[in-house]
Write a protein that binds this DNA or RNA. Sequence first.
DNA 1: CGATTTTGACCCGCGC
DNA 2: GCGCGGGTCAAAATCG
Length: 335
Amino acid sequence: MSDNTFYHDYMGIGGGINNTFPFFGENPSNYNDQPIIPNIQNPNHHEHQQFVPSSYMTLTECLHGSMDYNTLSNAFGMSCSSSSEVVRPHIDNQDSTRKSSISATTEPVLDSPLGDKTRVVISPTPNSSISSTSNEAVGQEDSSKIKKHVQEKGRQQEGEDKSKKECKEKKKGEKKVKEPRFAFMTKSEIDNLEDGYRWRKYGQKAVKNSPFPRNYYRCTTQKCNVKKRVERSYEDSSIVITTYEGQHNHHCPATLRGNASFLSSSHFMPNFPPQLFSQMLNIPPTNQNLLITSAAYNNNNNNYYYQQQHQGSEYSLFGGGTNNDASWIQKQEPS
DNA sequence: CGATTTTGACCCGCGC
DNA sequence: GCGCGGGTCAAAATCG
């Protein structure tokens, strides 16, 4: 199984964006352009760019999960082999040695060029929920043991049947199926970024070697078992790592209400199938584990733009649109 | 008062 | 088999 980690660098329209994001040149009039490809080309590269109209599509359906991966690949006339397994981002914080190369077992924070670019020294700020993992945890040990015993006794009396049944049912069925996952990184002060869906928090865990906890969310829609994990990078506290697991089986509540303003955070990405990018780029499955994304949003005209490049590929992808609906994606030939 | 968050305990897989 | 860490549960607390 290959990993497919997906980086998304969201930066405001403000400082630094011009340095890293080719769509935003010196001329602010570009921001008011409709998403017509030539108008948003990087002025520095326009001579070399050659766009491929056949690769042009709208993102709208992708954004709201109404297309499955096969449909998407068909739309592009590409085969969607079963080998395009989605993502299982390998997040192993135990590994203190950093892999500098792109590997199949990618840990989003550590391997991302974005992380390097924005690396800062994190001085762990006291966080009540986190600091309790060290000293307090020791003190909690004894009392928790007592509680444990009490609970166990209680369970033996009343809960045993139930839990046993559940265990059996789980064992009867197949192994817990791991849903497709993908992770992306977002430069944001807000931890839980608006993506149009409604989530309920169901857990929080301290992450080893990190002062920041990891939060677990579930989609509140019934029978939708999509999960989301949100954690802040311990290497760069300005970066939020979001990991989605599964696909929504329903429409996005925000768009049903006619409210698409959540796109202002450029968080259209979570529902965009990552393997589509590798398919568009003709990236071999073995190399599809790392996509680097830059994105930006113009609050003045509600346009968002992004660029995707894949290391090891000569191609890159451009996309954008408005938060009203229009959105697009474009494959760029190598220069 | 229902929905959501908090949080300690539990479960499970994995490495040693 | 044991310990560790990630993920989940579920009762209590809090919110709107």
